Computed example of a mutant assay.
Amino acid sequence: MTWTARLQRLLTTVEQRFPVVTELANRLLSTNLLDAGTRLAAQAFLAAVPVLFAVAAFAPQSMRDQLRDSLRAMFGLTGACDEELQRVLTDPAGKSLRETTGVVGLLITLLSATSFSRAMARVCERAWRLPRTGARAAAWRWVVWLLALVLVVFLQGPIRDGFGAGLWLGTPLLFVVATGVWLWTQHLLLAARVPWTRLLPGALLAAAATSALGLTARLYMPTALNRALSEYGALGMVLVMLSWLIVLCAAITFALTIGAVLADEPPLNRYLRHG
């Protein structure tokens, strides 16, 4: 028997004994997940910037302070980047933004930011191979998901600090919260078309990926952001943040897709069939 025949026989055996491996390989190869993650990252960035300025313009100072503390906790901001963030979120800057944008500008900003919600919904639907939800039925879900995500970002500082207890509690708490977020995200944006239990593998994988990237961001991002700001100005900061978002969103896209395959294939499908 030639080595080619042996390899073919081995592949056939793997396909028969572990169909999940075959399906997973097919899904990862047939779907351009990296492109989907890149598009999701672009929409995340386009949503994050106007929302940040909207908060700076209309939120009370206490909320702006909370957001600044959470962003510091997420990215370990120091030096020039921290000063830039503080400049955006200070009261004089907010007053200027209010005069520039107005309430109508705020509403347009929030509506345009739902493009990120729509992109995330499409990632979930592709992972589960479901058709798109009609805009009329899904519109309120996009807004609710975006507002909930903003709330989660606001709470990142206390969560990562374990509400004062430190990293020993903050780290597992971050994972638990992330699992709940991604479980609920799929349920909401898929319009409850998939049972909760089948959503769990993807939620756990996405939580593990986002928690790991979130914790390591504190080690890498401060130096990278300050260096980019000193060498290339604000454009350098944009490129660094966009690069990090591409990695994060690609990880989420892969995690949700892998989770959907694991939930649909044996052996997990026998335990996750009912929600």
Rank of each mutant, 00 (worst) to 15 (best):
D91E: 15
F154A: 10
L40P: 08
L188G: 01
L188M: 12
D82I: 09
L149R: 08
L34P: 00
T38D: 10
L248F: 08
A263V: 00
S62T: 11
A5Q: 13
P172N: 06
P60Y: 05
R126I: 09
D91Q: 13
R122M: 11
T133D: 02
V261T: 15
M120T: 10
V181L: 05
L173N: 11
W182C: 01
R136N: 13
L183M: 14
A80L: 11
A73F: 04
L146H: 02
I108P: 00
L7I: 12
Q66K: 12
G214V: 08
T185L: 12
W182P: 00
A73M: 07
R9D: 15
P267I: 13
E99L: 13
L213E: 10
L28N: 03
S30W: 07
A203Q: 01
V104K: 12
K95C: 04
M1N: 14
N26G: 14
L110M: 13
A255K: 06
L245G: 10
Q86G: 14
L173R: 07
F254A: 06
R132Q: 15
L7R: 07
S30F: 14
T171W: 13
L256E: 04
A5L: 15
A263E: 13
R227A: 03
A138D: 01
T179N: 05
L24I: 11
F163I: 07
Q16M: 09
P50I: 08
R136Y: 03
A135H: 09
S62P: 03
Q186P: 02
L190F: 07
L268F: 01
R273T: 14
R9Y: 08
R218D: 03
P19I: 13
W244I: 13
T22A: 15
S117W: 04
L7S: 13
E23K: 13
T253D: 08
R218E: 04
L189V: 01
L213C: 09
L188T: 07
R227V: 12
M74W: 04
A165T: 12
L235S: 15
Y271C: 02
M221V: 10
Y232S: 07
F254W: 09
M63T: 03
A208M: 06
V177C: 12
R6H: 10
A80C: 00
P222D: 02
E15P: 05
P222W: 04
L155W: 06
